[in-house]
């Protein structure tokens, strides 16, 4: 086990990775409230694969042409992720069968497309893997800048428009009747999810992004009494999970992504345990 003080003494070394984890955790912790409550928990797994496909597609297009319209890998990930998220989100309001089928199809298309196109790229597969999933421990300053800009933008949009997102997410026909711009809100939710997941996967990897987009939000929903409360709490728990996961990885020489995932699981379990204990105590009082 490493000395905890060494972590803070060497803060400059760890700062980009820690900050990336905190920002991605806060962003996904907030957005995850919508993901969980709309029962789209496998969305981020499917979207993660789609983002990978977007990266590989951009690299593949670059081998064919150097034209201006060929996107960079990061932009390719965002574009393909946005299209996939929007497609699924707009078709999953009613039928759980349709939703699960689409998410499964999206996951498989992303996974198969990544392998198929990846095999035709000049880069080595480990280079592509690093590009797809980042390395977690040492986040590049440019990636941190990207994560901070996108995370700040997403949090700002959702802090401003939480009433619109809530209305469209949970009462879509009522929102339409009250002339809320449902289509704009749907697109905004899909775009912000795509940005957050694509940037998160680039900085942290697919596994922690999947965990951070579900578990802190689930815990927040179980604790909060109001939706704004759940959104704020989800962001705080996500940020804490990102930080603690990194710190635990340093202490015990663990892979960062897996450590952040384990901490997210622990947070969700502790909240469930706490609720059970409180429920039992109230039962005895009653």
């Amino acid at each position: 086990m490493n000395d905890a003080s060494l972590f803070f003494d060497s803060w400059e070394l760890f700062e980009p990775g820690v900050l990336a984890g905190v920002i991605v955790g806060a962003t996904l912790g907030l957005l995850g409230v919508y993901v969980v409550l709309r029962r789209l928990v496998f969305l981020s797994a499917a979207v993660g694969q789609t983002a990978s496909f977007g990266v590989v597609l951009a690299l593949y297009l670059a081998t064919l042409s150097s034209a201006w319209w060929v996107p960079s890998p990061a932009v390719g990930a965002v574009l393909v992720t946005f299209a996939g998220t929007l497609f699924v989100a707009r078709r999953t309001r009613r039928s759980e069968v349709v939703r699960d089928g689409l998410l499964g199809g999206m996951f498989l298309l992303g996974a198969a497309g990544t392998v198929l196109l990846g095999s035709h790229l000049p880069q080595e597969m480990h280079e592509i893997e690093a590009l797809l999933h980042g390395v977690g421990v040492s986040v590049e300053p440019s990636d941190l800048t990207l994560v901070a800009a996108l995370g700040g933008f997403v949090l700002f949009v959702h802090a401003l428009g939480w009433r619109a997102f809530a209305a469209v997410a949970f009462d879509p026909i009522g929102a339409q009747v009250r002339r809320v711009p449902v289509r704009v809100v749907d697109i905004a939710l899909a775009l912000t999810l795509a940005l957050a997941i694509a940037a998160g996967i680039r900085a942290l990897g697919a596994l922690p992004v999947f965990a951070l987009s579900i578990l802190p939000s689930l815990a927040a929903i179980r604790l909060a009494r109001t939706l704004p409360g759940a959104l704020v709490l989800g962001a705080l728990l996500g940020a804490a999970t990102g930080f603690i996961g990194y710190f635990v990885a340093f202490l015990f020489d663990l892979p960062v992504g897996a450590s952040q995932t384990a901490v997210a699981i622990l947070v969700a379990l502790l909240v469930e345990l706490g609720r059970a204990v409180v429920g039992l105590a109230r039962g005895r009082e009653g």
Binding site: L160, G161, R163, A164, A166, A167, D171, G174, A175, R178, R179, V180, P181
Partner: peptide, 11 residues
């Protein structure tokens, strides 16, 4: 939530 109407919901 029934008061949330139009573009004002973005405030």
């Amino acid at each position: 939530g029934g008061l949330d109407s139009g573009w004002a919901t973005f405030l």
